[in-house]
Design a protein around this nucleic acid. Structure first.
Length: 430
RNA sequence: GGAACGGUGGCAGAGCGGCCUAAUGCACUUGUCUUGAAAACAAGAGGGUUAAUAGCCCCGGGGGUUCAAAUCCCCCCUGUUCCGCCA
């Protein structure tokens, strides 16, 4: 949620910044929000002066009663009663306009960073680094999609996953299952120097899912457990962001750095049949997320750090990758600036998004009410949040299957993963 | 799942319709004193809204009763203890 005060102090700046997202309806929403805000301030001023009178009269009643001046007390009560009637009407009006303002504000996206590239859609996202480690030519044995090779190796059994749970679920077996877990453990270990490991709940309340911006807009994307009014998390970003919701943090503890492995659940509504083969897209997958809550000043450096950390994992896994920056027309609503890391999979002949790192400024923190107090200063400020996938397991898993496939059909385990694979150096047919 | 009792300022804890603009203690900040600290004494100290040090709002959350609610009523959330069930 953007700061409503900016609508008042710098309406032109707000319009200019959001216009870069290329959504014409937005400007109208801004006007509506501005009008609601102005109306709300008039109403609350009038309501508050009434309340002031009522409070004053109530004190008088107490005094008059003590002094035994019952007739005067009755009169004050009558006056106060009629003021109360008007106050109630104004309050109802306040509630109504306030709800309208909130709805309007919730649908207004975040401001893009001044340096974020302009563009209309994902085809305009510039490559800002790489490709790195990309061979000019891939031999035939690497040009086989992982859904064929992994199934043949007996480490991917999507047919039975579908039997158990329906379409778009995956199941890894044997060293394939071990590899998934190894990737998680590897990603956690690589970031344990600076991030506290959390094992958060995977089921969260409506309020928690709203704080990150996933509700109300993306309700169709999450699994709802209606009987208990809970939702499955689409990413660890959800519980981690709300870890400090409603709290006022001391500046000294910032940046708060958290990381978590969690399963991620996504309905993928509307995505059926698209990029769904093998491990490319599924309703449930594993991911290690890294996240920071910071001051505004700390955020730019942290953004670079999160990208560098995700990138480092791809280097160590010996996978060809590139980094793209998300343009204004493709950016998520809550994002201020975003970078994706993509890994090349020669079998699919596709760049697979394996990490997305974003800076949200105060957009999420305002919804989640995460504030901080500067040392020695009065008042509070809204914190900034940033997060990124350290490693999204399935697509990295797929990329390993295809990039590290050897001429004899076996798959070489990258050195860094071997300690997590009970010493296995390759995956051979059983 | 059942029962009982709770949720008040950083912490502990009083208040149970109107001098509550929430006592008291501890912790905290500043000042006096001191070479410095401790102690003592004095003062101060929450969050939100607003142009505002005006007013208004915040005693788990929401609703209600009342001229007036931390205080009474209803619903919800949550904690502790006991019982039941259970990996």
């Amino acid at each position: 949620m953007i700061d409503v005060r900016l609508l008042r102090s710098d309406p032109e700046g707000v319009r200019a910044s959001l216009a870069r997202r290329g959504a014409p309806l937005l400007l109208q929403q801004i006007d509506e929000a501005t009008a609601f805000d102005a109306g709300l301030r008039d109403i609350s001023a009038e309501r508050d002066s009434l309340r002031s009178s009522i409070n004053e009269l109530s004190k008088q009643v107490a005094g008059l009663r003590r002094d035994g001046q019952d007739a005067e007390a009755e009169q004050a009560m009558t006056t106060s009663r009629s003021l109360g009637d008007t106050e109630r009407v104004l309050q109802a009006e306040f509630d109504r306009v306030n709800a309208q303002l909130r709805d309007a504000l919730l649908s207004i996206p975040n401001f893009p960073h001044v340096d974020a590239p302009d563009g209309a859609g994902d085809h305009d996202n510039p490559v800002v680094k790489g490709p790195i480690g990309l061979a000019s030519h891939f031999p035939d044995h690497q040009r086989v999609p992982h859904w064929d090779t992994a199934t043949e190796l007996g480490i991917l059994d999507n047919e039975r996953a579908t039997k158990i749970s329906g379409a778009m679920f995956t199941m890894q077996r044997g060293l394939g299952a071990t590899l998934s877990r190894a990737l998680c453990q590897f990603a956690l270990d690589q970031n344990a120097d600076a991030f506290e490991e959390i094992r958060p709940p995977s089921l969260v309340t409506t309020a928690t899912l709203t704080a990150t911006g996933h509700l109300p807009k993306f309700a169709d994307e999450a699994y709802a457990i209606e009987r208990d009014d809970l939702w499955t998390i689409p990413t660890a970003e959800v519980p981690l962001t709300s870890l400090h919701a409603g709290e006022i943090l001391d500046e000294a503890v910032l940046p708060v750095r958290l990381m978590a492995y969690t399963p991620c659940y996504r309905r993928e509504a509307g995505a059926a049949g698209r990029d769904t083969r093998g491990m490319l897209r599924s309703h449930e997958f594993d991911k290690v997320e890294i996240l920071a809550i910071s001051t505004p000043e700390q955020a730019p450096t942290l953004l670079q750090e999160l990208v560098a950390r995700a990138e480092s994992l791809m280097v160590q896994l010996e996978l060809p990758y590139r980094i793209i920056e998300i343009c204004t027309g493709d950016m998520g609503a809550s994002h201020h600036r975003s970078f994706d890391i993509e890994v090349y999979a020669p079998g699919c002949d596709a760049w697979l998004e394996v990490s997305s790192v974003s800076w949200f400024t105060d957009y999420q923190a305002r919804r989640a009410d995460i504030r901080f107090k500067r040392t020695g200063q009065k008042g509070t400020e809204i914190a900034h949040t940033l997060n990124g996938s350290a490693l999204a397991v399935p697509r990295v898993w797929a990329a390993i299957m295809e990039n590290h496939r050897q001429a004899d059909g076996s798959v070489r385990i990258p050195d860094v993963l071997r300690p997590y694979m009970r010493g296995a150096t390759e995956i051979r047919p059983r």
